[in-house]
Design a protein around this nucleic acid. Structure first.
Lengths: 231, 231
DNA sequence: CTGGTGACCAATATAGCGTTTTGGTCACGC
DNA sequence: GCGTGACCAAAACGCTATATTGGTCACCAG
């Protein structure tokens, strides 16, 4: 069932994505998207109720790709479920995907009003970064500092991660750090702040965690293609 | 010599500050400031070369007040020189001063174009947050993690602190945390990330550190009142 | 002489308004 | 019955006339 869309929705999303990255949110019109996708304008409205929903779907599809990459990496190496490893990959994957990078770095040039539009809400860091379920599993398996409860992270964790994204457009051009190094600093901060010095084994938790991210991915996929009926 | 200005500059800065907070950067005119301060418009230009410099001086004077509070606290309690204690106070003091809060939270409503104006440059976090001299003293006295060099903090430290400020305008209204608690989370993060588990005594470093902040304060004071001749 | 001033000016911002573009709909036809 | 593009109200844009404002400087009060 997964990924067996008729392809038309994806052609439209491809067109929207390309134009978004080329011209920025404000300058892209539905007519252009329809033309590039080779469909009538009305067809787009068979898939999504508004322009906003359409662009939300563009971003949601990117999130799906990212989450799938995350889940795959966790399957290949259980260590990858550790909070600091996950956020390291999260940072790298997000920065490698122009749409997500624009979203997380709050690139106003590209996203303009979409940044403050309500449709963007479900993409807010919180859900992706700090899925309560994921943190709960980590805590239960001794992969968070003793005594640290999932809700204790509600504020700090997204705030720290947000800082590493949001600082990007403000960095002077001559910062001698690559993405990998930045991700490393982020990971180091999270590991020291939230993880135990001697964490338990990861394997017992890996299955559950992978499942959580797979489910999250499906949720975003549904949200992307089902925008017509969604909230 | 300190603080013995003729008072006129301060009256002007008071007027500018009040109008800034009331109307926002864009709506405040030099004429209004002059009227409220009870001086002629030309007089303002005897103190500062441009409107931008004037508003920079408003912010610089706030920074002086904050730095003085920081230095006083460090004099009263040497523990206050620890990085996490300093940043805790920095956060609280900045958030308590409307002008600095607007600056650090990047409040576009209040500051508008001033946020991207070159005159603001010297107020950038880096100088205040991560004065190299201060970090060097901490390192020399064993108050930073072994092996952590001041330049290793150039990226991480401002980034983390920036996150805690910049997230503010994005927090939903129902976040159940007070400023003190937020500052506590920031301090905790910095302590665990950058400080040794068993730091050396603070007293030996306290004098030097206090001096650094006193000098920083004087620098900002000079910059504020000497805007006429400054760069 | 000197420090302070406000009338003055070029440059920028604003307001008004007619025109164009565009998100979203829906009657029609393949 | 699914897909379409002509259609429409609403929003965006371009443009001109007008108003505002940062910054200057000739002049004046002390």
């Amino acid at each position: 069932m997964r990924g067996e869309h008729d392809g038309r929705a994806d052609r439209i999303l491809d067109a929207a994505k390309e134009l978004l990255l080329r011209w920025g949110y404000r300058r892209v019109t539905i007519d252009e998207i329809a033309k590039l996708a080779g469909v009538g304008k009305g067809t787009i409205y068979l898939h999504w109720r508004t322009r906003e929903q359409l662009f939300f779907a563009v971003a949601a599809r990117e999130a799906v790709a990212m989450l799938d990459a995350v889940a795959a990496a966790m399957r290949a190496d259980p260590d990858e479920i550790m909070l600091h490893r996950y956020m390291r990959r999260f940072f790298l994957e997000a920065m490698d995907r122009p749409v997500l990078r624009a979203l997380f770095t709050r690139d106003a040039e590209t996203l303009d009003k979409f940044l403050s539009s309500p449709a963007r809400r479900p993409l807010e860091g919180a859900k992706l970064i700090a899925s309560r379920d994921y943190l709960r599993v980590l805590a239960r398996h001794g992969l968070l500092r003793a005594g640290l409860r999932p809700e204790d992270l509600d504020y700090s964790l997204p705030t720290i991660v947000f800082g590493f994204f949001a600082i990007e457009p403000l960095l002077p051009a001559d910062v001698p750090l690559g993405l990998e190094e930045k991700a490393g600093h982020l990971a180091d901060t999270l590991r020291r702040t939230f993880e135990p010095e001697r964490p338990s084994a990861r394997e017992p938790a890996a299955g559950e965690v992978v499942e959580i991210f797979e489910r999250l991915s499906r949720d975003f996929e549904d949200a992307a293609y089902g925008g017509k009926h969604g909230s």
